[in-house]
Amino acid sequence: MQIVLNGKPFEVKAGRLDRVLEELGYQGAKVATAVNGSFVARPARGATRLNDGDALEVIAPMQGG
């Protein structure tokens, strides 16, 4: 299915959020996630299923003022 990862279309095989993150290459990374604008906490990733067209945001630490 196709999802929108950080604003760009991506083809993924997995449906569960934790597996989608692995498939995309984020394993071991310090990141937080939101699906369709709502925060999905790390413990909830396994129970969160992505659907075709969902918008996934994956964010990480960054310089800030």
Binding site: N6, G25, A29, A32, I59, A60, M62, G64
Partner: peptide, 18 residues
């Protein structure tokens, strides 16, 4: 102070900053 931005799985800039 720190912030959050989109992370590319390939570049992983945020991991280095952290």
């Amino acid at each position: 102070t720190v912030s959050l931005r989109r992370e590319s799985a390939g570049q992983r800039d945020g991991q280095a900053f952290w």
